[in-house]
Write a protein that binds this DNA or RNA. Structure first.
Lengths: 215, 215
DNA sequence: TGCAGGCTTGAGTGACCGCTCAAGATGGCT
DNA sequence: AGCCATCTTGAGCGGTCACTCAAGCCTGCA
């Protein structure tokens, strides 16, 4: 009976492959890649080893697939909600930073950035993982640069938006790292405030260029 | 004979405890904490298990001692060499960033920041490690803040040097992470260039305050 | 109804993990 | 010389690691 009940319940559930990725996403984020055993993933996904290894022949294949999922999730889960409630292109950048802040709040600053964690843990030793992490960073960078390009007319004329987007990502990752190490939002808030101060100066400078005669 | 020879050779060598820390420092930096087995440390230090566990009862004790070493090494290995060749307090901040750049060059961007790596890998699960990582970050922050305070008169009057120092550390860590993920100096150089652009504006703003009549 | 292919089952694999400990070597003190 | 504290030796512990595989189940199609 419990087997039948299980089957009925499972009808509405996600397919096995997705359940594995769900479990791996949570556990890798919370404990790291090496520290998370396959057994823990199996338990959380309620599966046997064979099922998992049918879809992911090795643990590395699993984390690679997870990074692909992050790549496809960036737009619908991170970017779109921000763009929905904010239209100003520069404010959208800070909206993304605020979205990350909410994640820090909801995890009490304990977990940090799932991609950044994998970046530091595996870039040395797992070249394929490193490449996919780099692709994720590229996509983040491109999203931020898109905002900056859209607000280009309010920035100083010779602004390098690619460089500035890289800088925004740098600040985000560095700030999340410190927040995680200090278990406090303060370093994050301070860093974002300082980034805001920089943008204020860039915007002020550009508006001076536009109406220099008025002074 | 080989034993006697070994003994003679060892006379000039570092004590056991230091050799363990040397080996752990290299291996944790290159492979991470969890991925480095005690056996690998023993092999690199040319020791038996008992010797290591005599000084460090658990693996966690070992990484905690390593973080203490980083704390004591910061000044003589990182700060002092920069202060020796640069006197301008603001330039000293960028001298520290340049020192880190040299480390990236010498490791081909593969390893990143040893403290940052431990921060992301272990902060979730090892509270004592997290606390010592935080102490390391605090000390880095204090060193940078010291420079900023020394150059205070050239910064805008109401500059929060603590916040700005946190920001510098944020940029450093975030930039190193991206350099490691991309295996390229570009993200680091771009981020530092952007930080420099911010400082240029802060310095220009402050000098406007000082001589507003001359314009 | 039978069959083929995708998927699941779960006990089992050897290797490696952090760590133990009883025995012995060593150097300094009296 | 005798003795203690400090340190070293290395075989070996129980446990966990990523992973295997032969067998069976389920579904869709002929």
């Amino acid at each position: 009976m419990s087997r039948a009940q299980r089957w009925i319940d499972d009808q509405g559930e996600r397919p096995t492959r997705e359940r594995v990725l769900d479990a791996a996403m949570q556990l890798f984020h919370a404990q790291g890649y090496t520290a998370t055993g396959i057994a823990a993933i199996l338990e959380r996904a309620d599966l046997n080893p064979g099922s998992l290894f049918h879809f992911f022949p090795t643990k590395e294949d699993l984390v690679l697939a997870l990074l692909d999922r992050y790549l496809t999730l960036l737009d619908p889960m991170v970017i779109a909600p921000v763009f929905e409630r904010i239209t100003d292109p520069i404010e959208r950048v800070f909206g993304i930073l605020d979205g990350y802040r909410r994640m820090l709040v909801s995890t009490e600053c304990a977990l940090g950035c799932p991609i950044g964690n994998l970046a530091l843990e595996l870039s040395d030793t797992h070249p394929k993982v490193r490449a996919k992490v780099a692709a994720n960073f590229d996509q983040w960078c491109a999203a931020v640069r898109g905002c900056l390009d859209a607000g280009r007319n309010r920035l100083p004329p010779k602004t390098d938006t690619d460089r500035l987007a890289t800088f925004v990502l740098t600040v985000m990752e560095g700030a999340v790292m410190q927040a995680k190490a200090q278990r406090s939002l303060d370093p994050y808030d301070q860093s974002v405030a300082e980034l805001r101060a920089y943008f204020d100066r860039l915007l002020a400078e550009a508006s001076d260029w536009k109406k220099p005669r008025s002074s």
